[in-house]
Write a protein that binds this DNA or RNA. Structure first.
Lengths: 199, 199, 199, 199
DNA sequence: GGGTAAGCGAGACGGTACGTCATGTCTTGGT
DNA sequence: ACCAAGACATGACGTACCGTCTCGCTTACCC
């Protein structure tokens, strides 16, 4: 019996079409950029009717979001390196992040995703839950180990710690307001750890 | 005889139209949001031909940018409070920033401006030069005073210091990833100063 | 094993669905008009799958046709009044026809049927056979009686006679090119009989 | 100063586009038929934006109507042949009409026009005024001459006379309910004149 | 002080994309 | 096997804007 809400039945959904749409979206974001991406274009590239997109996604942003969310999924139970030296480990991780942001292939998609998330609170929540949360938990876990090892103050605010590490990096990337170098990564690690140092 | 470059003659420019366009843009960003803003709408609201907009601005983003840039102009030679206590002064300033970001009237315009800047490097450069630079210089100057007073390490990287103070704040606002409270501002100040403390 | 022709088995046909479809079609033609009638709408109103319509009818026109054909069926063995006075009898009949055409409730359905018939020769043939033929035969029979009574020329072309009587009426209705009044009906009868008068 | 009604300014209208649209419409009606004609198709064939069509015509029907109206225009001050013999003259005219209707090249366009007119009273009025009226006046004038010559009753209803002549012909064509032959034309003339004969 | 060339308002134009609706086909699950 | 339900590819709908263009008009500036 129908609920009358017009909500489509997910069991009838064509996995084939879903994949084609996400694939086409990924390709088009890379090729023409987010601003010139259109539902019409995605549908054409995917060999799919526009209605099939509108049936399953609320907006262009939601499709883009899903396209890259699906890519990164499966990143469950990740853990950061733990050599016992928190500073060295964070350097490794932040240098890797810097390298990732510098990769021009990531530029388009991540910018698209960023704009989408900042414009749509609902997508932001989804992003937080599905993608950011597990990664952040892994990072927090590494910091907790450092706390146990006495390298970080026992009462440190770990959420704030993560922001001190990553927000400056992200802001430089977003606004192109400064160079993203390994040295910059090191400096962020050094300053953050100094701020968190046990008395 | 025309040079054929199509470059308009700025001396002929109608100040009346310019103001009407910027005014209409400000109103419309507030009313319908940045995403639904259109050149057509601006022209209609301003009682102006579309061509007049295209003649003087490269893109919708440039108009929006100018609309809010004009608003904030005149902020020359600003200086931060200096009571001699760097921590107290920074708390004052950051708490003010937090309050500003929390103001819902700022939400729309600032988000629009942020998106525009992150999408268009040329606007980003203009923003940096005309709006951000003087403000940042004032902040840097206050930190330099703190260095002279021995409250901050003499060799501290002041640009990095500003990022540690402001980037986490900005990121929370942009992604709505956490509460913006006076306590949060205080925590940022405290951690940053600890990171910059002289040995 | 299937023959592969796709021809449905009429013995399996659901009379319940058939009636619901024809009923829904009649209602919708009245409510939204023929131009805005859709298979989708009929199926929804009838609580029937679209496929059930496509299985049993060739086109929207065929459904509409059937819907009103079914209405008028059972009009077998009709006979026109015969008082012995052909002129009086024809006046009675034509005045009744005029009244029928003037009824606004007939407007929608008959227009729909007319368009359908004029656009699809196959439906036209069906219409002619199932609906028009018996009525025309009754009219022809009345004229034959008039011939026997010497009121109409023995060699008159009765098909042409019917056209002279009804085509002007129908054309006025179809194109709204003139008033449909009892006097008009009388004038048609008078002129037609004069044209058919025995020498 | 704008009236604010959104009515477009006809002096700015592009004659080039108008002609291209009407031309494309005529071609497409012939090629794909009226039912499969689309605004989208007309715009594409004419090399014109869809809006340009919607700006100047209310509906697909109005475009089709104009397309053929424009064709037939200039038929001012037409006169029927007058040899002094009304029967011979009408035979000539009706035989010509029969031939016209039999021409398969006319089939599509005239059917399209007919459907349009019968579905839209406003177009019907326009048709009546711009196309039908002058032709009918010419026919009525020829009948008036016959009245003066004593070949037709002085008090005959000429509008009814025209209907008796043409409505049967038109109905046969519309419903394909009988052959359209020269003999049929002659029979119509003969019967009509008998109905109109002076006492 | 009269001509001329710019900016201006207006808005038509060829386009692209929007989001919706209906088409006719196909598949699933229920009877 | 038919049926209700409804997803699907397709394609047209009518609307909103895009950025370009062409109209008259006002408004300097230059001879």
């Amino acid at each position: 019996m129908s609920t009358g809400t017009g909500t489509p039945d997910p069991t009838r959904r064509s996995e084939r079409s879903r994949q084609a749409i996400l694939q086409a979206t990924r390709e088009l974001v890379s090729e023409v950029g987010y601003a010139k991406l259109s539902i019409e274009g995605i549908a054409a590239r995917a060999g799919v009717g526009k209605q099939t997109i509108y049936r399953w996604w609320r907006s262009k942003g939601a499709v883009v979001f899903d396209a890259f969310l699906t890519l990164s999924q499966g990143a469950e139970g990740i853990a950061l390196p733990d050599t016992g030296d928190i500073e060295a480990d964070l350097r490794t991780v932040l240098r890797a992040t810097v390298a990732e942001f510098a990769d021009p292939a990531f530029e388009g998609p991540i910018r698209a995703l960023t704009l989408e998330i900042s414009a749509d609170p609902e997508l932001a929540a989804q992003y937080q839950e599905k993608l950011a949360a597990p990664v952040e938990e892994a990072k927090r876990e590494r910091l907790r180990a450092a706390q146990r090892a006495g390298q970080v103050a026992a009462d440190a605010d770990l959420d704030l710690a993560l922001e001190l590490l990553y927000a400056p990096l992200f802001q430089r990337w977003l606004f192109r307001s400064g160079p993203l170098t390994p040295e910059y990564a090191d400096a962020l690690v050094e300053h953050t750890l100094r701020a968190l140092r046990p008395d």
